[in-house]
């Protein structure tokens, strides 16, 4: 009946970890308002490579906000390697599913996390297996509306 299931609606109406960390260890922005959704993620990483805090800000539809919220919950407390292993498919599963036309919203969250970790790795001179082959300028969204250029990572 409803457009989204209860879990999605809960994460949309009461999103977790909204905001922006001051002096973050890593920051990633993915998407663009022209494409209809844009997510910013800031992360704190401790000496053991554990992500201790994550905050997000998202311009986007219900499923973009819900995916962002869910994704932040999924990576808090995880090591960077574990966080890199999180896929957009897992985000969708944790949300209990998204309508087919909205699946790209989970890709947005997945990419924004990778952008933030990429930024962290660059700044701290680290390399991660999970970032191998990750192109910060790549455009994986093949359903872009007209005039929406490949989003890529932005800082």
């Amino acid at each position: 009946m409803a457009l989204y299931n209860e879990t999605v609606m809960d994460h949309f109406m009461n999103p977790r970890n909204v905001g922006e960390i001051e002096n973050p260890d890593g920051k990633g922005v993915y998407g663009s308002p022209v494409c209809g959704d844009m997510m910013q993620i800031t992360i704190k990483v401790d000496d053991n490579d554990v992500i201790t805090d994550v905050k997000f800000k998202t311009f986007g539809c219900g499923s973009a906000i819900a995916s962002s919220s869910m994704a932040t919950e999924m990576i808090i407390g995880k090591t960077v390697d574990e966080a890199l292993a999180v896929t957009n498919k897992q985000i969708v599963e944790e949300l209990g599913g998204l309508p087919a036309v909205k699946l790209h919203c989970s890709v947005l969250a997945d990419h924004a996390i990778k952008c933030a970790i990429y930024d962290y790795a660059q700044k701290h001179g680290k390399t991660y297996k999970g970032l191998e082959g990750f192109d910060p300028n790549a455009d994986d969204d093949d359903e872009n509306p007209e005039g929406c250029e490949g989003p890529g990572c932005k800082a």
Partner: peptide, 23 residues
């Protein structure tokens, strides 16, 4: 902000509107 988000939140307080937005 994005239109569908506005629409959904309005719907949660009993208000029906529509959007010309993509999402």
């Amino acid at each position: 902000i994005e239109g569908e988000s506005i629409l959904l939140m309005l719907d949660s307080v009993g208000i029906s509107v529509s959007t010309g937005s993509a999402c």
